[in-house]
Design a protein around this nucleic acid. Structure first.
Lengths: 212, 212
DNA sequence: CCTACCGATCGGTAGG
DNA sequence: CCTACCGATCGGTAGG
């Protein structure tokens, strides 16, 4: 995807997309002017439009770059995270790590969901359908073997976990204050509880997760 | 709160706030111009500013009206929802009902969280702190009696449930499509699974919830 | 990647 | 609650 990949010098296109992602995530698409984006990148406004045909085109590229990244990153992390908790923990941990390491990712997705429900629905449907089926098939398998609670609704369960991860990461600065003192170790505390809830609500009995 | 309460005729101020809530929720504060708001209300743009000193003042009023409503509505519903599931189900059901009956409420809150983290943190902290303590005290009590799982993190658990409710309601149009065919009964299906997850992750053993 | 510039729309004011 | 109008900024273009 990256044509140059240098730090700050080369790859104007990449620098534009990087700043656009950060700004769109924190202020929203409508809240970011081309002028503000140009300032952040370090060029004049019309120069942006030599790289992208319009402001909307920048948004599309930001979103589709993210979707590409997500689509390859999540399965990869799931594959390498084969610990003692099985496929479930690998999936949830991959999600938590992916969004946790850059909350802007979660904010960007939530904003697209709020700002453009129809467009975003179609995009997510196309990109995530295979992945959803992979996970829900695994859940149904676990149910037939008796390891997973029979009253779990596989698709709805998965979506609830995703919503919980996205919402938690995106809102940790705001909601973390309700926990008590302390800076942002609250993030980890929230994610720990999230994982506990997801695990407890899924498996028939508590796993002795003594593995790696 | 309503000074007149008539259908569409009286209470210009209320009509402005109603339309502003809907528009801010669906397009975001930056995405709604005073002109668009004036059109929706059915008056000219300068007339809006005879009722509110600025666009920002409209936003403040929308948010604080919502906070007032939320603060009185949630405890009220918790009080009257004394079914067989105890305080927990009352709280979660009150939350789910409150946001579920008008998804714009959830969208508005999420947008404020994303758009103005600092301001929103202080506001929610002031408004929700007492309510948070009420619920978490009840959880700790349940833990000491052995009815609630000892590994539950009370504050984090509550926030995760709130995040799940908000995220689910706000995104149901988008994420519901990943469930399968069907219109919006998916909303109920999602909320059912949400409640099941919240309950299972909280109580030591499954409740035979045969009560009302 | 720049200067110079476009019409349209922004939030808001004057004045009645 | 209106008409008329303000300077500033919006996304985008011309032309090099």
């Amino acid at each position: 995807m990256a044509t140059r990949g240098s730090a700050t010098g080369g790859g104007a296109r990449e620098r534009i997309l990087l700043e656009a992602t950060r700004l769109f995530a924190s202020r929203g698409y409508e809240g970011v002017s081309l002028q503000a984006l140009a300032d952040a990148v370090g060029m004049r406004k019309p120069s942006l439009l030599h790289h992208f045909t319009s402001k909307g085109a920048i948004r599309e590229q930001v979103v589709s770059d993210w979707l590409d990244h997500f689509r390859e990153e999540i399965p990869r992390r799931m594959a390498e995270a084969r610990g003692g908790l099985g496929r479930f923990a690998a999936a949830v941990t991959a999600l938590v790590d992916y969004f946790g390491e850059d909350p802007d990712r979660a904010r960007l997705v939530l904003r697209e969901v709020l700002d453009r429900p129809e467009v975003t629905r179609e995009r997510l449907l196309a990109a995530l359908s295979p992945w959803v089926h992979l996970v829900t098939d695994a859940i149904r398998l676990g149910q037939s073997v008796g390891r997973i609670r029979s009253d779990v609704d596989p698709e709805a369960y998965l979506l609830e976990v995703v919503v919980m991860v996205l919402g938690t990461v995106a809102s940790v600065d705001v909601t973390g204050a309700l926990l008590g003192r302390g800076g942002d170790p609250n993030m980890q505390r929230r994610l720990d509880e999230l994982i506990r809830m997801a695990r407890t609500a899924l498996f028939v009995d508590e796993e002795p997760h003594t593995g790696p």
